[in-house]
Design a protein around this nucleic acid. Sequence first.
DNA 1: ACCTGAACACCGTTCAAGT
DNA 2: ACCTGAACACCGTTCAAGT
Lengths: 208, 208
Amino acid sequence: MKTRGKLSRERIVQLALSLLDSAGTEGFSMRKLAAQLEVDPMAIYYHFANKSDLLHAVMQSMMENCEVPEPSGDWRADIRNLCHGLRRMAKKHPGTFCIYETYDQWLPAEHRLHEAFHSTLLQAGFSRKRAVRAVRVLLIYAEAFAVDEISGWLDPADQAELAESLRSGPYPTLSSLIEEIGTVDADSEFEFGLDVLISGLESGIRET
Amino acid sequence: MKTRGKLSRERIVQLALSLLDSAGTEGFSMRKLAAQLEVDPMAIYYHFANKSDLLHAVMQSMMENCEVPEPSGDWRADIRNLCHGLRRMAKKHPGTFCIYETYDQWLPAEHRLHEAFHSTLLQAGFSRKRAVRAVRVLLIYAEAFAVDEISGWLDPADQAELAESLRSGPYPTLSSLIEEIGTVDADSEFEFGLDVLISGLESGIRET
DNA sequence: ACCTGAACACCGTTCAAGT
DNA sequence: ACCTGAACACCGTTCAAGT
């Protein structure tokens, strides 16, 4: 009812989201989006101030749909679930997530997730300062892992390329590890990192 | 002696490196670089196939200058030093480092650093598989931390913006933590993450 | 061998105009 | 209120030409 025309903020955002995720950061442009909307490029500018204003709305839409599981009482399990939810969201919206990772302002929609992280750790007995620091480390890890995953840091074809690349100098250790470096199971890899972080965090809950 | 002209691969790379680091990813372009070199934009294309070929060389130059401290025998200290070296390099070359982070191919110049990481952990008694996984987690953390630092995730001015942004909904935990979230000392923050990771890693050296 | 210059297919965005 | 269309200042890059 707000719009009699063919366009609406909602329709633009939804199509932008899917175009960004399917075409990637490089393949996305205001002009291509307009073409998909079957509209003049400048029509979008009636609804959004500029490209980054639109991207802001797109990121908001992504974050609003992020699963934030309910707390179970076991902070270790809850933290894991929150990280998994974040990773699932990233894989569902690879293009948008990469934009989000280089975005330097607060997104209201991310507060819901951050609230859950922080309250989980405070409940678990973390001091305020330690909780904030722990969340920061966990988010850095989970998000950067997801970005690496999106950019394809696990294709088995890489193994040959690595071997080729290593011929540029004597790297005995790396050469002996080609198989291990090339063989990556993303799921268990992610789990491993969470194990390390959580066990590192539980050794000093009372500190600081 | 390879070039009689005003241009050379070396000169182009050095100026590209400093332009990229001072102007940032957005501010860098082939045309602006050519202007600084006082040369026609297309002159660069005689020395490099295209933009990403040039950026590859720029990243190589950055990584070649990365400090890779000698092993001391104490793997905990060595891992910390390697991570600090990486972070220092990132802060010295913010623009180039951000390009590097979204680059999806092997850079020969990064093998030196990775070799040091892996051999340190193997010496410390990590199994091959566990060493590879540990390095991956450590690099993800150190690099993503550096990127966050570069994009300015620690300015004290953010505190007011966060408070404003939190008014969009009820976020009791976050609201109570505004001060802690806004007050970040990057150095000790980085150290905290390393503490967590290393203590998490030492709890299971013999596993897997 | 090394650089120039015009040209092309893209961008995001301003601004005036149409309905 | 909502969209169009021409125009501008940018891109990266191809291709033919100059020295």
